[in-house]
Design a protein around this nucleic acid. Sequence first.
RNA 1: GCCCGAGUAGCUCAGUUGGUCAGAGCAGGCGCCUUGUAAGCGUCAGGUCGUCGGUUCGAAUCCGACCUCGGGCUCCA
Length: 663
Amino acid sequence: MADITISLPDGSKRILPAGASGADLAADIGPGLAKAALIVSVDGIQRDLAGPLDDGASVAVITADSDAGLHTLRHSTAHVLAQAVLDLWPGATYAIGPPILNGFYYDFELPDGATFSADDLEAIDARMREIIAADQPFERFETSASDALGLFAGHRFKQEIIERVTAGEAGSEMAGEMAATAPQGGTAAGVISCYRNGDGFIDLCMGPHVPSTGRLGHFALQTVAGAYWRGDEGQPMLQRIYGTAWASRKELAGHLHRLVEAEKRDHRRLAAELDLVSWPEALGPGLAVWHPKGAIVRKQIEDYSRARHETGGYDFVFSPHIAKAVLWETSGHLDFYADSMYPPMEVDGASYYPKPMNCPFHVLIYDSGQRSYRDLPLRYFELGAVYRYELSGAIHGLMRSRGFTQDDAHIFCTREQVAAELASLLEFTLSVLRAFGFDDFQAKLSTRPTEKAVGDQELWDMATDGLREALSTAGLSYVVDEGGGAFYGPKIDVDVTDAIGRPWQLSTIQLDFNLPERFGLEYVGSDGGRHRPVMIHRALMGSIERFFGVLLEHYAGAFPTWLAPEQVRVLPVAGEHQGYAESIVERLVADGFRASVDPADEPLGKRVRAGKVAKVPHVLVVGGDDVANGTVGENARGADSPERDLPLDDFVERLADEVDAKR
RNA sequence: GCCCGAGUAGCUCAGUUGGUCAGAGCAGGCGCCUUGUAAGCGUCAGGUCGUCGGUUCGAAUCCGACCUCGGGCUCCA
């Protein structure tokens, strides 16, 4: 039999006997790799280790070190979860169970509408570990759609998937998905692939999978949740189990530890601990009140935003919280956004809606007079409070609320001005975000939807090119969401990455070809003719409340000094030093700093601790020596040890520098 | 909205099978202590056990409804 030649990623070649599998290749390279190998990538297509390799193929052996390997590990663990559930609940059926970030889930429907309870997870976990201990091989086989329908008799979700896959070949929406994902398993068109492990467990799956269940085990089942089939409220509610899975015990422990850490910086917990914000039940879900310490931080954020807009070419405007139905009819909100609006108040025979957006008001301001091309661009800025009727289950602290304030602006410009306007706007956006300590950005460009869209193609192209240019000028990496734009215009969304690596979508820059049309906006051009302006919606922080929440989590409550609610706390060592402490605070407050005295009613150690726990950036201790010499003992937040005998003037200068530098 | 889970002092929690189970620590008030760097001592006050109904001789505990909060509701075979 002729040998086959395989190319490896490093460019080297290996000769193997004909019929050799990925596992054989891994073993040929070395015993360590043989043990670690999970799947192979053959000419860029992921496959099981067990399958034979073709002569001349480029093959990479994939281990759990790579994302692809981890994905496979999680995907296979999801299968074991399904096997365990089907073992334990006779009559249960299963839907889908993909790998996700850090883990996996699987959706089930239990007989007679039964639901999982949190206690069930323990039994499922135990059964999964038995399956893993049995080291059952994952065996792939392929079949026709009609045979597959028989194989999954009684499992309606699997049958639906098979039907969709089959229909997909005729060119439905599913075809695109399959085309995009087929390389994962290398399934030929018209063939349904399945995996069998254990005595009778079979799942419909593209694969690939790890060689056997024994390769799994570092997992934890996490939560039970309801999830609609295909994410559609009109579809049945399935029972979803989430889990996390890793290549080693250590990585699993690390992940669980990170979850605990993330919980510690949960903004809702910190908001309560630091006395910043609360959500009194009497207000209703998704509505918060700002306590003095939270409010002063928010004020710093807003003041900074206003100052930047004031020097950034914006005009300030204000608009009311409610408006008559006719405004929302004209803007179209009542057509496509009514579900998210609070119901109207009836006053004097008219219906007034709380505003979910500020744009129509700004449009009216534009429309309050005749505009010349010489006036453009016009940039209207408002910290506008809006109210949106979010689903009660979607509400989440300050991150998703029913009342919030946008750092909102609308720019009205000519078509010719769009590109330049976008470029400077993106620079402006990043500059503002950087001031708050974010420097890791990721952008998304959303382009023209394939179906309905308003505005001519030329306009879309120009605006989309403008956005693209702005992104490259700013040196921002971005992904393109083809067809992901709204019907009324393309947009850029900007994510920041926080201190523990989580992305938050903050900024959005959105072209709008629709509202100017609906409101019949015009300007007089240099040709004397009337033209339609282009409108740009933009928010940098998005929601001030949410931005505050993101900052709170980013800094784990330890706001930089310029934002900190309490910048300096002065602790007199004993009662006799109270006067000196007060004189320091007086001076600091006069200079515009936020400072207070914590009197000597408690032992110094206790007060120092209280200052640290409150995350005050500077805790000053002043005693007899300091009174005599005009000095302070400085405890900088995060410093290991105090700095004694620091001249007060030096401290104030340092503090001022720190605040100026926004540190 | 829908699925699962949770609601006991301001906060974190304990309360065994329904029968002194209404408790603790921290925070708060008041005294004492006058402190040189991460919790001094004493004392007082605080709760309709989320709300409303029901079962029971008796409910924080069991049942139902409601309210609020938390997690989830396509990262897609």
